[in-house]
Design a protein around this nucleic acid. Structure first.
Length: 163
DNA sequence: AAGGGACACAACCGCACCTGT
DNA sequence: GACAGGTGCGGTTGTGTCCCT
């Protein structure tokens, strides 16, 4: 199947968003929601592709986003979830309220990967793996630091329902 | 004070999956 | 069942800032 590139149209803006564009996007979504990302920028009068709008909204403009540094608890949760789920950042983000997959991905690549590497090179390999192994025995209701029982694995068929 | 490397984060790209026809 | 279009995800890149020498 051949797919036209998302932003093939000439004249579509790329790069950092301006406060004005943010404002337009936020007010439009608050008013009408985001039923169709592809059509949204056209209707809202933004010179952006739908993909870009979606990313901006999800990673930055959403009202429930928690900005600022990750707490130690959040970092520990990311490490554990990553050991269980792998690079499924959206699944990890779903278990950390207010955090986005992009943010988690960035934190992982900048802080945690390095920290984990340091830890494994200095400590015995059994420690964290055993914790994960014991948790993996009960994959349906992992209790994290926020004390919320969280389902860990979604069958592929349920993936679309998360959207 | 200046230069360069490291770090942090926002944004883009391409692919896979899902859904409607 | 095949195809086409839309959406979401993960990997990667670009750029601004910080820190060390």
């Amino acid at each position: 199947m051949v797919r036209a590139p998302c932003c093939e149209k000439m004249g579509l803006k790329k790069g950092p968003w301006t406060p004005e564009e943010d404002q337009i996007l936020v007010s439009f979504i608050q008013k009408y929601g985001h039923g169709n990302w592809r059509a949204l920028p056209k209707i809202a009068g933004l010179l952006r592709c739908g993909k870009s709008c979606r990313l901006r909204w999800i990673n930055y403009l959403r009202p429930d986003i928690k900005r600022g540094n990750f707490t130690r608890e959040e970092e520990e949760a990311i490490i554990k979830l990553h050991e269980m789920l792998g690079n499924r950042w959206s699944a990890i983000a779903a278990r950390l309220p207010g955090r986005t997959d992009n943010e988690i991905k960035n934190v992982w690549h900048t802080h945690l990967k390095k920290r984990l590497k340091d830890q494994t090179s200095t400590s015995s390999p059994a420690s964290s793996a055993s914790i994960v192994a014991s948790q993996s025995a009960e994959p349906e209701n992992i209790i994290l630091h926020n004390h919320l029982p969280v389902p860990v694995m979604f069958p592929q068929s349920q993936k679309s329902q998360l959207h």
